[in-house]
Design a binder for these strands. Structure first.
Lengths: 211, 211
DNA sequence: TCGGTTAGATAGTTGGACTATCCATCCGTT
DNA sequence: AACGGATGGATAGTCCAACTATCTAACCGA
């Protein structure tokens, strides 16, 4: 298909698609002439993936670049591919290089994970995210206590167990990655949205007037 | 306290604090001379709040401006204040003005909320976030089915119920807002981080090698 | 009195993500 | 065959958010 068709069907402008081509997010089409190239369904799918990660997941182009580069590199095994992608998802917590308080928060996170018996890589970015949040909570005068965290931990475990049940290891590489990205990037947004809605409902019932 | 002290204690540069003063995020200190002003503990607390919302919640300055403006406006009642803040939290989904598909997704969200019996304002931004995510999921070939959503809905309800139980209506205005922001902005990050960690643990158990 | 600090104003920087132009083809239609 | 509109590839420019830097004229404390 032509680039204009790709543009129409993906909802991105031709200019944006060209930009993604330059950045290596989208592989080139097969050239049919000096000023002509042919794109296929894989390009369209790729663009839809990029769009979802950008617009819903709010991932920076650089992170998406890393993910698709790993995807396109056939030498990378499935396990490593998923690991790379997960790492690229970030979050990209700026290492504030805060001293003692930061180290204490990191330590809290490590103990928590150990206590829960979770098997998590030592450099998982989510560790930093959690530590950063603990730090902020403390700075605002909200100490972190385990009983406070309990419902969140339970929710995370329940949801992950459910998600893991849906994983299967005999799907094509691309599909496996897509499934992982969808559960961690898109369904996380679903969870956030539902949380906010449920929160509004709960406050309405708590303080609100009659239905 | 002096601005340099404020800078040291908040971890923000003097320049950044001046910038926040210009933007109206931080009220001016009490002037003691033409080139001198005095800041107090409220300024420090405000800066910590701004920092948490920016760095952890990733809120744009404009959203924070709206929130603190409402907070500082004594004419605004508590209920309205919380509503304004919640609305300012976004998310700031660009209205793609997509036609039929967008309207269908919105409709799905509306039916879901109605079905659940949740009391949610008709313009709650979380509605748009959910619709946008549904749209992206569909585009990627992941149809939305209620059984898929069930665990997320349950988690959202459980967590919100827990959070609502901690709300109380006889705390000072500022504390009430802070509590709301903390649960929706910071604890949401906690939830995401825990989810990613639990997810990694679950995949490790599913595919991984022995502990 | 003198080096270091500050309020207030204005201007400049950085990073990320596009967006606009150009040119030399090239395609499909007339 | 001719021509108007689309393309590939390259380069340059735009836009926005969030700072960051500089300058001036006071001011403070040793």
């Amino acid at each position: 298909m032509k680039i204009s068709e790709l543009s129409d069907r993906s909802g991105l402008t031709v200019q944006t698609i060209k930009f993604y081509l330059r950045e290596g997010l989208l592989p080139k089409g097969t050239a049919t002439a000096a000023t002509r190239a042919d794109y296929d369904d894989r390009h369209l799918k790729r663009l839809r993936l990029i769009r979802a990660l950008r617009e819903v997941g709010d991932l920076p182009i650089a992170a998406i670049t890393r993910i698709v580069a790993a995807l396109d590199d056939e030498k990378i095994g499935l396990h490593e591919l998923l690991g790379t992608a997960q790492h690229a998802l970030g979050p990209h917590v700026p290492p504030n290089a805060d001293g003692a308080a930061w180290r204490a928060a990191k330590q809290d996170v490590d103990s928590l994970i150990a206590e829960l018996g979770w098997r998590v890589g030592p450099h998982a970015p989510a560790r930093d995210l959690l530590a950063q949040t603990f730090l902020a909570l403390r700075a605002l005068g909200f100490p972190i206590v385990l009983t406070e965290l309990r419902p969140y931990i339970d929710a995370a475990e329940t949801i992950s167990a459910h998600e893991a049940g849906r994983l299967s290891d005999d799907v094509p590489r691309e599909r496996a990655l897509l499934g992982m990205l969808v559960t961690t990037v898109l369904y996380e947004q679903v969870l956030i949205a539902l949380h906010r809605l449920a929160h509004e409902d709960a406050s309405a019932r708590r303080f609100g007037d009659a239905p």
